[in-house]
Design a protein around this nucleic acid. Structure first.
Lengths: 191, 191
DNA sequence: GTCTATAAAAGGATAGAC
DNA sequence: GTCTATCCTTTTATAGAC
């Protein structure tokens, strides 16, 4: 399957996995080209501005992929409370399958690292989070919530999911994600 | 003031500030010894196991300092809802004063980085989070909540605060912390 | 305990052949 | 477009004088 990808795609997907798992600074360009079995010359051919440009491309890639997953999950349930709860439970399930390297579901580490090194990367991450939040917002509005209430709740959702993933990673245990999912009805009850 | 510290303390506090701000991998030992104006020999004299041992010590230091701050804030209000709300608003305030390098309030970046490089550092971070969570737990129990309910809510609080700080850092904007504080009454209403 | 010089490895980036 | 060899910098870590 990887052999069907072209060189640029191989570099990009390998970088995305490594950046997500180990972070920006812990991931060497040599590691990326070795893991993806591509020559270093190609990396700089496709990403002339080096590591930062490659990171920007991976942020966009991961952002879009996760966005797609969110939409897919939320569409499976007309009731937003149930839909969002199921989505977070799905995250919890994916967390336990995270050996499967296709399962990317967070850019938190990469985002925090970029804060102190590159304003353009930081902004790229901000845009990704905004995109995700807007998806929650749309779901809440479509179920009849006022725009104001939906805006507020979608931000809280975003922050809770981010926090739950972070704590789950640090504890190496998905129970915080499950607990968050269970708490969603209480949180959204307050319309 | 810094001159009153001994060499070990200078290294430790400087490392804590840099690790918190820029992360583990982005902070070089040379940067730490330069910033703290201490000789490299002393670093390896006090921390024979190098960077990892130094990081472990800073995690403990930051954990204890923040723990102290949490206790201090929560003690100022007998009502736990108000106390926790005020505590988060204080975080939001500190966020805007973060040029003051004394103001450490998160080990999130450091913690996420350690997940993939050192299980002992990861566990050190987990213990810090558990310590903080227990402080919220004690406050909730002391106000009459059942142990079970307090346990559940203290974990949710921990995760929301972590998420709010993360998103605030990435957005470079403390409004998510303020929004979280405002949401606390709704969350804790569900006893 | 303090300090400096230096080793040894890894990092990002570039040049230039093909 | 592909590939390799190499440069320069920075990293962690150590040796050994004082």
């Amino acid at each position: 399957m990887e052999s069907k990808m072209n060189t640029r795609e191989k570099i990009l997907t390998t970088a995305a996995i490594l950046f997500q798992k180990n972070g920006y600074h812990a991931t060497g360009l040599n590691e990326i080209i070795k893991e993806s079995a591509t020559p270093k010359g190609s990396l700089y051919y496709y990403f002339p501005n080096g590591k930062e440009e490659l990171a920007a491309a991976t942020i966009k890639l991961m952002g879009d992929k996760i966005q797609h997953d969110i939409k897919e999950e939320l569409a499976q349930n007309s009731d937003p409370v149930q839909a969002i709860k199921e989505f977070i439970l799905d995250l919890a399930w994916k967390f336990n399958e995270k050996e499967d390297q296709e399962n990317c579901f967070s850019i938190g580490l990469l985002a925090l690292e970029t804060v102190s090194i590159s304003d353009s990367l930081r902004k790229a991450c901000t845009e990704v989070y905004d995109m995700w939040t807007d998806t929650y917002y749309q779901k809440l509005v479509s179920s009849g919530l006022s725009s104001e209430k939906a805006k507020e709740l979608s931000l809280i959702l975003q922050l809770m999911i981010e926090g739950a993933i972070t704590i789950s990673l640090i504890r190496n245990d998905n129970t915080m994600l499950v607990a968050t999912a269970e708490k969603i009805p209480v949180l959204l009850k307050d319309k």
